[in-house]
Deep mutational scan, measured.
Amino acid sequence: MDVFMKGLSKAKEGVVAAAEKTKQGVAEAAGKTKEGVLYVGSKTKEGVVHGVATVAEKTKEQVTNVGGAVVTGVTAVAQKTVEGAGSIAAATGFVKKDQLGKNEEGAPQEGILEDMPVDPDNEAYEMPSEEGYQDYEPEA
């Protein structure tokens, strides 16, 4: 019985440690998101679009440190934060509304985080759909 109880105690310690790591990862992701939003706020009209992409990228980098179902929630929060940063930029006159959601080359930025393969159960990952990809044929 002692062996059984000791095993359960060790398992509990492992769960607590994993929860603490997840909590730490979420806190880091939130900190990076805040950094990115402050970065966007300090940019001029020309830099705002690039700044919004930076927020998304920093958040995406930190999301990889967070495991399990938390990833889905962090990704949703990050996307809403990026959308909010863009709205703030438009409201303050840093950028025109028609410039939001495009990178410096004018290509749409939507789907940055949505296409990231995420499995809350950590069982399997699927690649994003290939609808947006084109076949590449090298020139002879």
Results as ranks from 00 to 15, higher is better:
Asn103Thr: 04
Val37Thr: 00
Val95Cys: 15
Val66Ala: 11
Asp121Ala: 11
Asn122Lys: 13
Pro108Ile: 09
Val3Tyr: 07
Glu105Gly: 08
Gly14Asp: 06
Asp121Trp: 04
Phe4Lys: 00
Val70Pro: 01
Tyr133Trp: 07
Leu8Cys: 03
Thr92Pro: 07
Met5Arg: 04
Gly47Trp: 15
Gly51Tyr: 10
Lys45Ala: 01
Ala29Leu: 08
Gly101Leu: 14
Phe4Ala: 00
Tyr125Gln: 13
Glu83Met: 02
Leu113Phe: 15
Asp2Leu: 13
Met127Lys: 12
Asp115Cys: 07
Val16Tyr: 13
Lys6Asn: 03
Ala140Gly: 06
Glu35Leu: 13
Val71Gln: 11
Lys12His: 09
Gln134Asp: 01
Ala124Met: 02
Val37His: 00
Gly132Gln: 15
Gly14Ile: 07
Tyr136Gln: 05
Val74Lys: 01
His50Ile: 11
Glu139Gln: 08
Asp119Arg: 01
Val37Glu: 00
Gln24Val: 15
Val95His: 01
Lys45Asp: 00
Pro120Ala: 09
Asp121Cys: 11
Ala107Cys: 05
Pro120Gln: 10
Ala11Gln: 00
Glu83Val: 09
Pro108Val: 10
Glu28Asp: 03
Val66Cys: 15
Val95Arg: 15
Gly93Met: 03
Gly47Ser: 11
Gly93Asp: 06
Lys6Gln: 10
Tyr136Thr: 03
Glu35Gly: 01
Gln24Met: 06
Tyr125Arg: 09
Lys32Met: 10
Glu139Ser: 14
Ala89Ser: 11
Ala85Tyr: 03
Val71Lys: 09
Ala11Asn: 00
Gly47Ala: 13
Lys32Phe: 13
Thr22Arg: 01
Gln99Tyr: 12
Met5Phe: 09
Glu114Gln: 07
Ile88Pro: 09
Leu8Phe: 02
Glu35His: 04
Asp119Lys: 03
Met127Tyr: 07
Lys97Thr: 03
Gln24Thr: 05
Asp2Phe: 12
Lys23Val: 10
Glu61Gly: 09
Ala19Glu: 00
Pro108Arg: 13
Thr54Phe: 04
Ala11Trp: 15
Lys23Phe: 07
Gly101Trp: 05
Val63Trp: 13
Ala11Ser: 01
Lys21Gly: 00
Val71Asn: 03
Val63Tyr: 08
Thr92Ser: 15
Met116Arg: 06
His50Trp: 11
Met127Pro: 09
Thr64Ala: 13
Lys58Gln: 11
Val82Ser: 09
Val48Thr: 05
Gly51Gln: 14
Asp98Met: 07
Gly67Leu: 14
Leu113Thr: 09
Gln24Gly: 09
Thr81Leu: 06
Val49Tyr: 04
Gly93Tyr: 13
Asp115Pro: 03
Glu110Gln: 08
Val52Met: 15
Ser87Cys: 06
Ala27Lys: 07
Glu131Asn: 10
Asp135Glu: 13
Gly47Pro: 01
Gln62Arg: 13
Glu114Ala: 09
Met1Tyr: 00
Gly31Ser: 08
Ala89Arg: 05
Lys43Ser: 05
Ala124Leu: 11
Ile88Leu: 15
Lys12Val: 15
Leu100Met: 15
Thr64Ser: 15
Ala17Gly: 12
Gly132Tyr: 09
Phe94Glu: 11
Gly67Asp: 01
Gly41Lys: 03
Thr44Ser: 13
Ala140His: 11
Tyr125Ala: 11
Gly93Phe: 02
Tyr39Asp: 01
Val71Glu: 04
Gly25Gln: 14
Asp119Met: 14
Gly14Pro: 00
Gly84Val: 12
Lys60Cys: 11
Val52Glu: 01
Phe4Ile: 10
Pro128Phe: 10
Glu110Lys: 11
Glu130Asp: 15
Glu137Phe: 14
Asp121Arg: 03
Lys96Leu: 11
Lys80Leu: 13
Lys96Asp: 06
Thr81Ile: 12
Val26Arg: 00
Lys12Phe: 14
Pro117Ala: 10
Lys45His: 03
Gly86Asp: 10
Asn65Ser: 06
Val3Asp: 02
Lys21Asn: 05
Ala29Asn: 00
Glu20Leu: 15
Gln24Tyr: 15
Thr72Leu: 06
Tyr125Asp: 06
Met127His: 05
Gly73His: 08
Gly25Lys: 11
Val82Phe: 06
Val26Met: 05
Thr81Cys: 08
Tyr39Pro: 00
Phe4Trp: 10
Ala124Gln: 04
Val3Ser: 12
Gly68Trp: 11
Val70Asn: 02
Glu114Lys: 12
Ala19Leu: 15
His50Arg: 05
Ser129Val: 05
Ala85Ile: 07
Glu13Thr: 08
Gln79Ile: 12
Gly106Pro: 10
Ala76His: 14
Glu35Val: 07
Lys32Asn: 01
Ala18Glu: 00
Lys102Ala: 11
Asp135Lys: 06
Ser42Tyr: 12
Thr33Trp: 13
Leu100Glu: 11
Gly47His: 04
Thr33Lys: 01
Gly67Ser: 06
Glu57Asp: 10
Thr75Glu: 03
Thr33Ala: 08
Glu114Cys: 15
Thr22Lys: 00
Val71Leu: 05
Glu130Cys: 14
Thr92Trp: 08
Gln24Trp: 04
Glu139Tyr: 08
Glu13Lys: 01
Gly93Trp: 13
Val37Gly: 01
Asp98Trp: 10
Glu20Arg: 02
Thr92Tyr: 04
Tyr133Gly: 13
Gly67Cys: 03
Gly67Tyr: 06
Glu46Pro: 14
Glu110Ser: 11
Ala78Met: 07
Gly68Thr: 06
Leu113Ile: 15
Ala56Ser: 01
Glu13Val: 01
Ala17Pro: 00
Val40Tyr: 12
Gln24Arg: 10
Ala124Tyr: 14
Met127Glu: 12
Gly68Lys: 15
Thr54His: 13
Lys6Ile: 01
Val82Tyr: 10
Val118Trp: 13
Pro108Phe: 12
Glu28Ile: 09
Ala140Trp: 15
Lys43Arg: 07
Ala17Ser: 12
Ala107Ile: 02
Ser42His: 02
Ala56Glu: 02
Gly25Arg: 08
Glu130Ile: 02
Leu113Arg: 06
Lys43Val: 14
Gly73Asp: 05
Phe4Gln: 00
Ala107Trp: 15
Glu110Cys: 03
Val74Glu: 02
Ala69Phe: 13
Asp121Ile: 10
Thr44Lys: 02
Asp135Thr: 12
Asn103Gly: 10
Gly86Thr: 06
Gly132Val: 10
Ala29Thr: 08
Glu131Val: 12
Ala30Gln: 01
Pro117Trp: 15
Glu57Phe: 09
Ala69Lys: 10
Val74His: 02
Gly47Val: 12
Ala30Phe: 05
Gly25Asp: 05
Ala78Ser: 05
Gln62Glu: 04
Gln79Leu: 15
Ala76Met: 10
Ala27Thr: 07
Val95Asp: 07
Thr92Val: 14
Ile112Met: 07
Ser87Asn: 06
Lys60Arg: 04
Asn65Tyr: 02
